[in-house]
Design a protein around this nucleic acid. Sequence first.
DNA 1: CTGAAAGCGCTTACAG
DNA 2: CTGAAAGCGCTTACAG
Lengths: 355, 355
Amino acid sequence: MKTSRSRPRIRDVAEAAGVSETTVSHVLNNKGRVDAATRARVAEVAERLGYRPNSNARGLRSGRADTIALLLPVGADLALSHHVLAVDFYLSLTMSCVEAAFEHDQALLQLPPLRKLDDLRRFSIDGGIVVDPVPEDPRVAMFQRLGLPVVTVGRDITHPDDPWWVAADSAASTSAVLDHFVAAGARRVAMLSVDIEWSWFADAELAYVEWTESHGHEPMLVLARPDKLDSSAAEAANRLLDLRPDAVYAPPQWLATGLLRVARERGVRVPDDLLVSVGVDSHLARTSEPPLTAVDLDPARTASEAVDLLVRRIEGRESEGPRLIPVALHPRASTMRADVHVTAGPATRRRPARP
Amino acid sequence: MKTSRSRPRIRDVAEAAGVSETTVSHVLNNKGRVDAATRARVAEVAERLGYRPNSNARGLRSGRADTIALLLPVGADLALSHHVLAVDFYLSLTMSCVEAAFEHDQALLQLPPLRKLDDLRRFSIDGGIVVDPVPEDPRVAMFQRLGLPVVTVGRDITHPDDPWWVAADSAASTSAVLDHFVAAGARRVAMLSVDIEWSWFADAELAYVEWTESHGHEPMLVLARPDKLDSSAAEAANRLLDLRPDAVYAPPQWLATGLLRVARERGVRVPDDLLVSVGVDSHLARTSEPPLTAVDLDPARTASEAVDLLVRRIEGRESEGPRLIPVALHPRASTMRADVHVTAGPATRRRPARP
DNA sequence: CTGAAAGCGCTTACAG
DNA sequence: CTGAAAGCGCTTACAG
C-alpha cells in the first residue's frame, strides 16, 4: 500500500500506463486516433489510480469551465418574489438542475442577483439558465453581452423566435383546469392572475380568453399587482368575487391562498359555492383547507431539459426548437363537489400561443 | 475607442501601468511591498480596463478555487425530505449563502447528493457547508477524507466538541414557544416531533423535557417516523391528541400541518381547544387555517454566519466557537384565544444543552 | 497511432 | 520596492 499522496496528475497516469500525457488526454477526452488496446489500458489505469482531471488546468487550457449557472428570480429576501409562483417549484427545480448538470459532467453555480456586468464577469462559467425571464430580461442581456450561451425556463414573451427555452405548458394547463371546472359543474369560470410579464402567466391568460370565446362566455379576469402581496391579493380576490364566479383558476400560489382567505371571510364556501385551482403544486396546496387542485409543473423534467438544451447550445449545436414540458392536473377537494361526478381533464400537449 | 477585445489579462494591465505582472499581482492581492503611488496607479488602471483575474489560472497556480459548496439535505425528489423542515427555509438559506459567498468573493456551488468520494472529487472547491448533518454524516466524512474544510448548519449531536457549526437556537426557540403557550393559558403542553437525529429536533426535545421538569409537569412527547410522511403524521398526531394536551409545539412543518388536519377531523378546535405552534416559518404557516404561530429561524443570518465561518476555516484560522443564531417567535391565530391576554415570549439567547 | 513541445493566465519564491 | 522566471496541470496543434 503506497502512502496516500495528493491526487494523481495526468503524468502519473501516463507513467503507469507507459504512454505520453498526450495519449492519456486523448483517451480521457475521446479525441484523436488511439489504438483500442492502448485506450483500454489507459482507461483502466486512470480508473485504478482514481484520476480526476484538475478542472482549473483543464479550464485554463481549453477555455471551458464545465460549470453552468442558475439564476432564479429570487433574492435572499424571499419576502416578495418567492410566493408569486411557489417555493417548492424553485427548490425542486434547483436540485434537479444540480443533478442534471452532474450527469452532464457540469457543476452548477447558483448566482446572486446581478447588479452590473462585472458581477457576472467574476464567475467562470460556460453558460447559464435564467428562470422566469421578463421582457428584455437584464440577466439574459448580460449573458449575451459577454457572449455566454443562455437558456431560459419560461420564455421572453417579446421574443417569439427565440428557440432557446424550456417551459411547462401553460396553455395546456389552463385548458385542463378550465375543462375540469366545467366537468365539475361550473358555469361562471374566472381567472385571478398577476400583472407580471412571465410567459407562464401571459400564456395562461391568453388561453383563458380564447377558451371563454370558444365557449361563448364573457371573460372574468382580474389581475393583482405584484407588490404588497397580502393586500393586493385581498383586493384582487374581493374584486373578482364581486363578479360572482363559481370557479376560479389562480395560477400564482399567493393569489390562490389569498382567494381562499377572502372567500372564507365572505362566507363563500369552497368547493360548494366556489371551485378553486392553483397553477403550481406545493406542500401548501396539498395541505390547505381545503386542499387545492393544482397543476404539477414537473420541475425535474423542466430542469433536465433546460440543462440539456444549454449544454447543446454551449457545444455550438442548433436548437431543434423550444421544449414544452407536459403537465398533469392533480384534482383535490377544492374542486370536488360531493354531488358532481368529476373527471380530471388530461393535460393535452399543445404549443403555446405566440404573439 | 478600441475594438472590444476579449477580456484583459494581467499583462495588459501591467503594460498600461508600466509595471511588471508581478507588481500588478501584488497590488491585486494585497501582497508584498509596493509603493503607495504605484499601488494606486495599478489599481486605477485595472479598474479602468475592467480587469478580472481568470479564476482558472489563479486557481491552478494558487490551489484555491474561490468556490464553496452548499449541501442541502434534499435531493431532486423533494417528496420526502423537504417538508420535514420547510422549503422556504432551505430556499432562503440557499439564496442567502449565494449572496454571502459573493460578498466574500466566493462562488457558490450547489452539490448533488454524494454517492461516493469520487463524486466530490469532481468539484473544484475550497470547502463546503453541510446543512442538517446526521451523526457521523457521510457528507462531512467525505470532506474530511479529502482534507477539505467543512462547516455545518446544525450540529452533529455526537460531536459536542466540534466548534465549526452555526445553528438557530433550538433550545431558546422551544422555551419561547412553551412560555408563550403558558401565557396563553395552556396547562397541558405537549410536543410532537420526529425521529431524526438533527440537532434542531434533538435540542428542542431536550429543552422541552427540561422545561416540563422545572415546571412540575409530565412530559407528553410523541415522535413520528420520518417515512411515509402523511400517514406517520396522522398516526403520531392521533396518538398525541389521545393524551388530551391543550397546546402542542410541533417543530417540523409537516407535523404541524398534519396535526391541524387531524384536529379538524376529530372536532378539536384550534386555538379554542388546542394551541399549535410550528418550529419554522413559511408561507404555509402564514396562510394555513388558522395561521400558525411560528419560529423565525433567520436563514439569512444563519447563511451569512456559516459562510463567514467557512471562509475563516479555509484561511486556516481558529474557530472562536460555534455560532448560535437568535430566533424570533411570530405569534399568530393558532395560539391566540379571544379570551386570554397573550404575551410573546422573547427568544432568549441561550447555549443549547450539550450531551 | 503516438509523443514532444508550447502555452493557457496567473502567483510565488527569489534575486536585486 | 520591483521584476524575471518558473511552474501550476492540463489540451492542442503539429510532426513523425
